[in-house]
Computed example of a mutant assay.
Amino acid sequence: MKYIASGFIFPGLFFMAWWLTISGSIPPGMVHTSLFEERAINWLLFFCGFAFISASVMHSLFAKKMAKTIGWVTNGFQYEIAAVSLGLGVSCFYALYWGRSAQVTISISVVAFLFFSGINHLKEVVINKNFAPNNTLILIWDFGVSISLAVLLLLPT
């Protein structure tokens, strides 16, 4: 029960990114833009940077506790997740300042990683009846960010 609150962090970041986009706030890395899509991509990548770096810390330094909140037993998968999360997080921050091609490049990796992570978490819910907070609430983040970025990148510029 004590891990339920942590399950709301990533979905909260997703909704915060959209709230800041809709409110017209200019994200880090942008001087000014009136293009909704550009703001949305940058806000999503900004919060992805924080989320991935924090996931890297949680899956490495606090591996046992993190696995428990997902409803899993810790093993080597977490150190792999930590490594890829660190790379994705740093790359998201990098893309904020290096323009559209950097944003597209990292977004492809983020979309693939989060979408298929979401499929795996959903499989855990359906097949194994794993309703742990960080296995269910994370679906909002996994599918919300991946679908949002995919749609935003496919819009004509």
Rank of each mutant, 00 (worst) to 15 (best):
I138T: 13
A40R: 04
S107V: 03
V84L: 15
Y94D: 10
N128A: 11
A82V: 03
F8H: 04
I26S: 00
A95Q: 01
L153M: 11
F62H: 15
L13D: 10
G24A: 07
N42G: 07
H59P: 06
I127H: 13
C92H: 03
E37G: 04
S146P: 02
F131N: 10
I53D: 02
N75F: 07
T33H: 07
A5S: 13
S56R: 01
W43M: 09
W19M: 06
M66C: 12
W43D: 09
A67P: 05
N42H: 14
T105Q: 09
V111R: 03
F131I: 14
W98G: 05
F52T: 06
F143P: 02
Y97T: 08
N134D: 13
G12V: 02
N128C: 03
Y94E: 09
G99F: 12
T105Y: 15
M1S: 10
N75V: 13
F46Y: 09
F14R: 00
F50H: 08
V73H: 09
V151D: 08
F131P: 01
L20V: 04
H121M: 02
G118D: 08
A63F: 02
Y79R: 01
K65N: 11
A55V: 12
S25A: 12
A63M: 15
V151C: 07
I70E: 11
G118R: 10
M1Q: 05
F15K: 00
A67T: 11
A132G: 04
S54Q: 13
F93N: 04
S148G: 01
F8N: 01
W98K: 14
V110G: 11
E37M: 06
F47Q: 04
N135R: 09
T105H: 09
F47A: 06
L88H: 06
F77A: 14
S91M: 10
W19D: 06
P156S: 14
L44Q: 10
K68M: 15
T33S: 15
N42Y: 07
A82Q: 01
N135V: 08
T33W: 06
W18I: 09
F131H: 12
T69V: 08
V57I: 15
K129C: 08
L149N: 00
S6R: 10
A51H: 01
F113L: 15
C92P: 11
A95T: 03
K123Y: 14
A17W: 04
V57K: 00
S101V: 12
H121E: 00
F143I: 05
F113P: 06
T157S: 08
K123N: 13
L35F: 13
L86V: 05
G24E: 07
L86I: 07
L149G: 01
P27A: 08
G118E: 05
S117V: 09
G144F: 03
L137A: 08
F15V: 07
F131C: 04
L35A: 11
M16V: 11
A55S: 13
E37N: 10
T21I: 03
